[in-house]
Design a protein around this nucleic acid. Structure first.
Lengths: 169, 169
DNA sequence: GCCAATCTCCTACTTTAGTATGAATTTTGT
DNA sequence: ACAAAATTCATACTAAAGTAGGAGATTGGC
């Protein structure tokens, strides 16, 4: 293990933190400026007596707006799915039974079979990673391993064989 | 058109408006309560001298949070249409026959269908090129074109859909 | 004849897929 | 408890798939 590698890792780590913190630093700065403005406003309003309520009101309104703004900046846009149904014919899934014999012959692990099911549904590695809460690396590992066990060389071959052997729906 | 129907429409309309306004009424009530709380806090804090800054600070923090909350409540979700294929079960013929109806719907050319068959057998582009005496470029063109017609984004999806629609063996 | 569709092929990319290797954890069977 | 198997993740590649755009032949039908 070179020290250079360790150093590079540390730097990468720091940069990541900085990037994450960048927005926070920005907000912090903005807030700092606001404190001065408010202090000035406070002084100005307090000259006129009994205007504290107005001052408080302005503060409240302003910070509410600030809050709204911060929220819109921070929250990812909500996505509402509108389901549009589209009729598609599919063949008898009611009779479908997994060919356990062929499946056991292949000696796949649970996870590998699980991944294979998604592969056979046309999922990309990224899709599978998201579905199973895995990293793409892990998905690739599983996929690669099941190719060896299935004796195929590509996704397409795996799908074809899996469907032919009836080891996936 | 019956009058009952008209009446029902009017009611539906009113209910909708009430439902929309309900949230606003709720927020209004909450704000009203807050005003009292703040007034009380203001009075309490002003007994101790020089604690105005703390008071202002609390107001600021509170209303920022309020703003964030309001924003999350108010932001309308972006609408995204997701086409979901509704499975319709059809009687399965014993021996395989190509679903000519679905095939024609896709409007594939002869060559595209021919290429699709090989894709569905797990052939790589190079394999297909060799089988049909084409260049890989041509195969890629056909494959790419049939993806558009089939409304899929990858080989795996094409295979899955082609098998499901029974437009390939 | 000619137009439109089809079929063919190309270059130049970008994006995914797939391989090899190593390694840290967690599960599991005995 | 301990070893083997399984699961997870990473880096660093190479290979294949996929996209975009253009362009020259061929062909069937009006």
């Amino acid at each position: 293990m070179g020290e250079t590698k360790e150093y590079a890792r540390a730097m990468t780590f720091l940069i990541k933190i900085f990037l994450k913190a960048r927005r926070i630093i920005l907000y912090g700065s903005v807030l700092a400026v606001l404190v001065f403005v408010l202090k000035w406003l406070q002084w100005k309003f307090l000259i006129v007596d009994n205007s504290l309520d107005i001052y408080i009101g302005l503060i409240a309104i302003f910070f509410t707006i600030l809050g709204v703004w911060v929220a819109t900046q921070l929250t990812k846009p909500k996505v509402e799915k509108v389901v549009v149904e589209k009729e598609v014919f599919i063949p008898q899934p009611e009779n479908f039974v997994i060919n356990q014999i062929e499946l056991e012959k292949l000696d796949l692990t649970n996870r590998e079979h699980e991944v294979l099911q998604l592969v056979a549904r046309g999922y990309s590695n990224a899709d599978i990673a998201e579905s199973l809460f895995l990293s793409i690396s892990t998905v690739k590992t599983h996929v690669s391993n099941l190719y060896v066990k299935m004796n195929v060389k590509s996704r397409a071959q795996a799908i074809e064989k899996a469907k032919r052997l009836r080891i996936v729906e």
